[in-house]
């Protein structure tokens, strides 16, 4: 009888556990659902290849060993406009220390992007995601979104929204190879 009781307890506990597990799992999924589509810190940064204004192809994995500051932007986006001169300034400081900027424009015309870059004397590579496929792969929603990729190719930080000059400097410091 006690054996039977013990067995009953185990069976009941097992059934309850499985079902409670399913509920927790579902809630977790529905919560993480919207966010898990976005890349997570710690993930391998998906590789991509985009062409800049000079026709040169930039592949993320080519910069392995360097820290890459990937910034998604558009000319109509006000915060992007504000942070670009600051990024340029810090780029001058960190480019010789192994930090690269890749500014990914979202599907605008060459003319608009070139005009924007020339007016601001930007020297870091600006690439255009013509089909929004990189934006899709990175699940970028608001602009600007910045991803910090460390020399090992892992995402160490995802920043949505405007950054101050101090922010940009500290982020570059963070992904600088040792």
């Amino acid at each position: 009888m006690t054996v039977k009781k013990k067995k009953r307890s185990y069976v009941r506990a097992a059934i309850l556990l499985v079902m409670a597990g399913a509920i927790v799992f579902t809630i977790y999924n529905s919560f993480a659902g919207e966010k898990s589509e976005l890349l997570q810190v710690g993930d391998e940064a998906p590789d991509f290849a985009l062409v800049d204004l000079e026709g040169k192809e930039h592949q993320l994995s080519d910069y392995q060993g360097q820290g890459v500051f990937v910034n998604f932007w558009g000319t109509w986006c006000k915060p992007c406009e504000k942070e670009f001169p600051l990024m340029e300034k810090q780029y001058q400081v960190y480019k010789d220390q192994g930090v690269q900027i890749l500014a990914v424009n979202i599907a605008q015309s060459d003319y608009e992007v070139r005009q924007f870059a020339e007016q601001r004397d930007l020297t870091f590579p600006i690439v255009i995601d013509k089909t929004k496929s990189v934006m899709e792969a990175y699940n970028i929603r608001p602009l600007p979104t910045t991803l910090l990729v460390n020399p090992e190719g892992k995402i160490t930080k995802i920043i949505t929204g405007e950054m101050s000059e101090e922010d940009i400097a500290s982020y570059m410091e963070e992904i600088k190879p040792e």
Partner: peptide
């Protein structure tokens, strides 16, 4: 349908269905 308590309630309904049936 994505709020945690609604999902939890549906889950409890599932538990109730299984246990009450068994």
């Amino acid at each position: 349908y994505s709020s945690y308590w609604f999902i939890a309630l549906v889950g409890m309904l599932a538990i109730s269905l299984v246990i009450a049936s068994l």
